[in-house]
Simulated assay, not measured.
Amino acid sequence: MVGLAGGQQAAEFMTLTPLGADQILAGHQGADLTTLAANDRHRIVTRTPLWFYVLREAELNDGVLTGVGGRIVAEVLHRAMEGSRYSIVRRPAWQPDLCSPSGRFTMAHLVLHAYDHDPRLLNPVG
């Protein structure tokens, strides 16, 4: 209705291997599509709504955003960083100094840094 690409179109645009029809229909203990009429099942496997496709991808990857969903989230975050006047991407000399004992700098380190290293601020409800 709003002209969004389907999941398979998004995957192909991103040069990713799209989910197969069986993956979309069966999933992994998620939404049950067996009650859909045959022509509705055909439509959902040929042009899966993007929101359903991303959820099915995550379901098939133990709840982890990968593929299309992971790329969308990463690009939104990257664009937000590029659009900010105060972003680290505007300071080419910036180097992370928040490494963990393992020497890795992760998104969790960046988020904690944004919240003054206080995890309670990230989840005020507990």
Rank of each mutant, 00 (worst) to 15 (best):
M1K: 12
M1P: 09
M1C: 04
M1Q: 07
V2R: 14
V2Y: 12
A5F: 08
A5C: 12
A5K: 14
G6T: 12
G7N: 04
Q9E: 13
Q9P: 01
A10Y: 02
A10Q: 05
E12W: 08
F13L: 15
F13M: 15
T15F: 08
T15W: 03
L16G: 05
L16M: 12
T17E: 14
P18R: 11
P18A: 10
L19S: 05
G20H: 11
G20A: 13
G20C: 09
D22P: 01
Q23V: 07
Q23G: 08
L25E: 07
A26C: 14
G27N: 06
Q29A: 11
Q29G: 02
G30L: 12
D32V: 11
L33C: 13
L33A: 10
T34A: 15
T35V: 12
L36I: 11
L36K: 14
A37M: 11
A37I: 12
N39D: 15
D40K: 15
D40S: 14
D40R: 15
D40H: 15
R41S: 07
R41A: 10
R41M: 04
H42K: 15
H42V: 14
H42Y: 13
R43T: 07
I44E: 01
T46I: 11
T46C: 11
T46M: 12
T48G: 02
T48A: 05
T48W: 02
L50Y: 04
W51P: 00
W51Y: 09
W51G: 11
F52G: 07
V54L: 03
V54W: 01
V54K: 01
L55H: 04
L55R: 07
R56F: 06
E57F: 02
A58N: 06
A58C: 07
E59M: 02
L60V: 06
N61F: 04
D62H: 07
G63P: 07
G63C: 08
L65V: 03
G67D: 04
G67T: 08
G69I: 01
G70K: 03
G70S: 03
R71H: 08
R71A: 03
I72R: 10
I72F: 09
A74G: 04
E75Q: 15
E75S: 13
E75N: 15
E75W: 14
E75M: 13
L77P: 00
L77Q: 06
H78A: 09
M81C: 06
E82M: 09
E82D: 03
E82V: 06
G83C: 02
R85Y: 02
S87G: 12
R90N: 04
R90S: 03
R90F: 02
R91F: 06
R91H: 08
P92A: 10
W94F: 11
W94M: 07
W94D: 05
Q95R: 13
P96E: 05
P96L: 10
D97P: 00
L98I: 08
P101F: 06
P101K: 13
S102T: 14
S102M: 01
R104A: 07
F105W: 08
T106H: 09
T106A: 06
H109Y: 00
L110I: 05
L110W: 03
V111D: 01
L112S: 01
L112I: 04
L112W: 02
Y115V: 12
Y115H: 11
D116H: 15
D116M: 11
H117K: 14
H117N: 12
D118Y: 05
D118L: 10
P119H: 03
R120M: 08
R120G: 05
L122R: 06
L122G: 05
L122E: 01
N123T: 09
N123P: 00
G126D: 04
G126E: 06
